[in-house]
Design a protein around this nucleic acid. Structure first.
Length: 216
DNA sequence: CCAGACGTTGTT
DNA sequence: GTCTGG
DNA sequence: CCAGACGTTGTT
DNA sequence: GTCTGG
C-alpha cells in the first residue's frame, strides 16, 4: 500500500512534467504522512489537499474517518460508499511522488525495516487518486492501490497505482470503464528500492537523508 | 423500522 | 490492545 | 504508514 | 448520503 511518501522535485519540473498551468512553491518533503496537506494535480491545476479522503456526507471534519481513507482499492473503489461519489463524478487526481515507503516485517515479525521505493531512473512518479471536497474548504484525497508486480512484489503484495505522467490527459479524460482499465494496466516493473533508516518511522523526522540507502 | 458503518493491509 | 496525531 | 498515548481534579 | 445488520 502506500502510507508514507516523499516529494522533493523542483516545482518547475512538476509543472513541465504534468503540464500544469500554475506552479506551486512547495518545500521538499521526505516524510509525508496521512492528514497532511500535500500537492496534487487535478487536470491542469496543481494545488494542496489533505491526504485521507473525507466523504462529502461526513457530519464533521472527522479525522479518524478520513485517515482510514488514505488508500482505496482500485478493484472495488466504484462500489464503496466512501469513494463512490468521487469515482462516479470523476474527481480524479494525480499525486506526484519522488518515491514512497513500505515497511517489511522480519520472518518472526519482531522487527520491521523501512524501504524507499522509487523509479529506476529516479523520475517523479504519478500516483492516481481521487479527491473530495467537504464543506467550503476541506479538500482531501486518497491514493488508489492494486496488486503489486515487478521487483517490489517481494516487499509487499499491494502497491499504489502508478501511471506515466504522459498519460495525465488520458487519466482525466477517461470514462469510468477506461479509468478502470488504466488502473488494471498499471505496472510496477520499472521500480527499484532500498532499505532506509528507521528514523523515517517518526513523522517529525523530515530530512533528505531519510531516503538514503542503509544496510538492510 | 433504527443504528451504525462507511477502509486497507496483513495475519491468523 | 486500541485510538489518535502527524 | 508508524509512534506515542492511554487520566482526573484543581490550580494558574 | 446510502447500505447493512439486527
Amino acid at each position: 500500500m502506500c502510507g508514507r511518501y516523499a516529494i522533493f522535485a523542483e516545482p518547475s519540473k512538476l509543472k513541465d512534467m504534468f503540464g500544469t498551468e500554475n506552479i506551486l512553491n512547495i518545500a521538499p518533503r521526505y516524510n509525508a504522512a496521512p492528514m497532511q496537506d500535500m500537492p496534487i494535480i487535478i487536470k491542469t491545476r496543481m494545488g494542496m489537499a489533505r491526504w485521507g479522503l473525507l466523504p462529502p456526507w461526513a457530519k464533521n471534519d472527522d479525522a479518524s474517518l478520513a485517515v482510514k481513507m488514505m488508500n482505496a482499492r482500485s478493484e472495488t473503489v466504484h462500489e464503496k460508499p466512501s469513494f463512490r461519489d468521487s469515482w462516479e463524478k470523476r474527481r480524479r487526481c494525480l499525486i506526484p511522488v519522488s518515491g514512497f515507503y513500505e515497511w517489511k516485517k522480519s520472518a518472526n515479525a519482531k522487527t520491521k525495516t523501512p524501504y524507499f521505493i522509487h523509479g529506476r531512473d529516479n523520475d517523479v512518479l504519478a500516483l492516481v487518486g481521487l479527491w473530495s471536497k467537504w464543506g467550503n474548504d476541506v479538500v482531501t484525497y486518497t491514493i488508489l492501490t492494486k496488486q503489486a508486480d515487478g521487483p517490489i512484489a517481494d516487499l509487499h503484495h499491494r502497491m499504489p497505482v502508478i501511471v506515466p505522467a504522459s498519460q495525465s490527459e488520458k487519466w482525466f479524460g477517461a470514462d469510468t470503464a477506461q479509468a478502470h482499465q488504466m488502473m488494471a494496466d498499471a505496472s510496477g516493473t520499472s521500480l527499484a528500492f532500498h532499505a532506509v533508516s528507521n528514523q523515517v518511522g517518526a513523522v517529525k523526522n523530515d530530512y533528505k537523508e531519510l531516503v538514503d540507502a542503509v544496510a538492510a
